[in-house]
Amino acid sequence: MEQATVKWFNAEKGFGFIERENGDDVFVHFSAIQGDGFKSLDEGQAVTFDVEEGQRGPQAANVQKA
């Protein structure tokens, strides 16, 4: 698992990007966020996640709020 920071997340559209420590951004979809209830992330929030290869490149999976 990697630890990184949420760059931005649009709760209405259900997706955003996580900024990795190496500077690369990773796409995150609300369905990858672990937990119950409304799944959203806040800008600047610390998260841990795995990286999977998606249809359009790397994307976050198993996202957990740190």
Score class of each variant (00 low, 15 high):
Ala32Asp: 07
Trp8Ser: 03
Val28Trp: 01
Asp42Gln: 15
Phe27Arg: 02
Glu21Tyr: 11
Lys13Ser: 07
Ser40Val: 11
Ala32Gly: 07
Phe27Tyr: 06
Asn10Thr: 05
Gln59Gly: 03
Phe17Leu: 05
Gln64Trp: 11
Phe27Gln: 03
Asn22Lys: 11
Val51Pro: 04
Gln55Pro: 15
Lys65Gly: 09
Asp42Met: 15
Asp50Thr: 15
Lys65Tyr: 11
Ser40Pro: 04
Gly57Ile: 01
Gly44Lys: 06
Glu19Gln: 15
Phe17His: 01
Ile18Val: 05
Lys65Ser: 10
Asn22Ser: 11
Val26Leu: 15
Phe30Asn: 04
His29Asn: 02
Gly37Asn: 06
Ala60Ser: 03
Asp36Glu: 13
Gln59Lys: 08
Ala66Ser: 12
Glu12Ser: 13
Asn10Arg: 04
Glu12Arg: 12
Asp36Met: 11
Gln3Lys: 14
Lys65Asp: 10
Gly44Leu: 02
Val28Phe: 13
Arg56His: 12
Gln55Val: 13
Asn10Gly: 03
Glu52Asn: 08
Val63Tyr: 00
Gln34Glu: 09
Ala60Glu: 02
Lys13Gln: 08
Gly44Ile: 02
Gln59Phe: 11
Ala11Ile: 11
Ser40Trp: 15
Phe30Thr: 06
Glu43Ser: 15
Met1Tyr: 11
Asn62Thr: 06
Glu12Asn: 12
Glu12Leu: 14
Lys7Arg: 08
Lys13Asn: 05
Gln59Tyr: 13
Phe49Cys: 06
Val51Ile: 14
Phe49Glu: 01
Phe30Val: 07
Leu41Phe: 05
Asn62Phe: 08
Ser31Tyr: 05
Gln64Asp: 06
Val26His: 00
Glu19Trp: 13
Ala66Asn: 12
His29Gly: 03
Ser40Arg: 11
Gly35Ser: 09
Ala4Lys: 00
Glu21Ala: 13
Gly16Arg: 00
Gln64Phe: 10
Phe30His: 09
Gln59Pro: 07
Ala11Ser: 12
Val26Ala: 02
Val6Ile: 10
Gly57Asp: 02
Gln59Asn: 05
Gly54Asp: 05
Thr5Met: 09
Ala61Gln: 10
Gly14Trp: 03
Glu2Ile: 14
Asn10Phe: 06
Val63His: 01
Asn22Tyr: 11
Met1Thr: 13
Asn10Cys: 11
Val6Arg: 00
Val6His: 01
Phe49Met: 09
Glu2Met: 13
Glu43Tyr: 13
Trp8Gly: 02
Glu43Phe: 12
Glu19Asp: 07
Ile33Asp: 01
Phe9Pro: 05
Ser31Met: 07
Gln34Asp: 08
Lys39Gln: 09
Asn10Asp: 11
Asp42Phe: 15
Val28Met: 06
Arg56Asn: 11
Gln34Asn: 10
Gly54Met: 06
Ala46Met: 14
Ala60Ile: 01
Ala11Lys: 15
Glu12Trp: 11
Ala11His: 12
Asn22Asp: 11
Gly23Pro: 03
Gly54Tyr: 05
Glu53Val: 14
Gln64Val: 13
Ala4Asp: 02
Gln64Met: 11
Glu12Lys: 14
Asp24Phe: 10
Asn62Arg: 09
Ile18Lys: 00
Val47Ile: 08
Phe49Pro: 04
Ala46Gly: 08
Arg20Thr: 08
Lys65Glu: 07
Phe9Ile: 02
Trp8Tyr: 06
Glu21Met: 11
Glu12His: 12
Glu52Trp: 10
Asn62Ala: 04
Leu41Ala: 01
Ser31Trp: 05
Ile33Trp: 01
Phe38Glu: 08
Val28Arg: 00
Lys7Ser: 05
Val6Pro: 01
Phe30Ile: 07
Leu41Asn: 02
Ser31Arg: 07
Val6Trp: 00
Thr48Glu: 08
Glu43Ala: 15
Thr48Ile: 12
Ala60Gln: 02
Val47Ser: 00
Thr48Cys: 12
Glu12Ile: 13
Glu12Tyr: 12
Leu41Ser: 01
Gly44Met: 04
Ala60Met: 00
Asn22Gly: 11
Val26Arg: 00
Ala32Cys: 07
Phe49Lys: 01
Gln59Trp: 08
Lys65Gln: 10
Val51Lys: 03
Val28Asn: 02
Asp36Lys: 12
Val47Gly: 00
Asp25Pro: 09
Gln3His: 14
Ala11Val: 12
Thr48Arg: 11
Ala66Met: 15
Phe30Tyr: 13
Ser31Asp: 03
Thr5Leu: 11
Phe9Val: 03
Asp24Ser: 14
Pro58Gln: 09
Gly35Thr: 09
Val26Phe: 06
Arg20Tyr: 05
Gly16Phe: 01
Glu43Arg: 15
Glu2Asn: 11
Asp25Lys: 10
Asn62Ser: 06
Gly35Ala: 09
Asp24Ile: 12
Gln45Glu: 13
Gly14Ser: 01
Val6Asn: 02
Asn10Ser: 12
Thr48Asp: 06
Phe27Leu: 02
Gly35Met: 12
Gly23Met: 10
Ala32Tyr: 02
Asp42Ala: 14
Glu21Asn: 10
Gly35Val: 09
Gln45Asn: 07
Trp8Gln: 04
Phe17Tyr: 06
Ala11Leu: 09
Gln55Thr: 12
Asp42Arg: 15
Lys39Val: 08
Glu43Trp: 13
Phe9His: 02
Glu21Cys: 13
Asp24Pro: 15
Gly16Pro: 00
Gly57Val: 02
Thr5Ile: 13
Glu21Val: 12
Val51Cys: 09
Arg56Ile: 07
Phe30Lys: 07
Val63Asn: 00
Pro58Cys: 08
Ser40Gly: 08
Phe27His: 00
Ile33Gln: 02
His29Tyr: 04
Gln64Ile: 12
Val26Lys: 02
Phe17Asn: 02
Gln45Trp: 10
Pro58Asn: 07
Gly23His: 08
Asp24Glu: 13
Phe9Met: 02
Asp36Val: 12
Phe15Tyr: 15
Asn62Ile: 04
Val28Cys: 07
Ser31Phe: 06
Pro58Val: 10
Ile18Trp: 01
Gly35Ile: 09
Ile33Val: 06
Gly54Asn: 06
Gln3Ser: 12
Val6Asp: 04
Gly16Trp: 02
Val6Tyr: 01
Met1Phe: 12
Trp8Val: 02
Phe27Asn: 01
Lys7Thr: 04
Gly57Thr: 03
Trp8Lys: 02
Lys7Val: 05
Pro58Gly: 04
Asn62Gln: 05
Phe38Ile: 08
Ala46Pro: 11
Glu2Asp: 07
Lys65Leu: 14
Ala32Ser: 10
Thr5Phe: 14
Thr5Asn: 08
Arg20His: 06
Gln3Val: 14
Gly37Cys: 09
Asp36Gly: 11
Asp36Asn: 12
Asp36Ala: 11
Gly57Lys: 03
Gln3Met: 13
Asp42Val: 15
Asp25Asn: 12
Gln55Trp: 13
Gln3Ile: 14
Glu43Gln: 15
Thr48His: 09
Gly16Ala: 05
Ala32Met: 05
Ser40Cys: 14
Phe15Val: 05
Glu43Met: 14
Gly44Val: 02
Gly35Arg: 00
Gly44Gln: 04
Asp36Trp: 10
Phe49Tyr: 09
Gly44His: 06
Val28Ile: 08
Gly16Val: 03
Phe38Gln: 06
Gln34Phe: 11
Leu41Tyr: 01
Val47Thr: 04
Gly23Ser: 07
Ala66Phe: 13
Glu2Leu: 14
Arg56Phe: 14
Ala66Gln: 12
Gly44Asp: 04
Val63Trp: 00
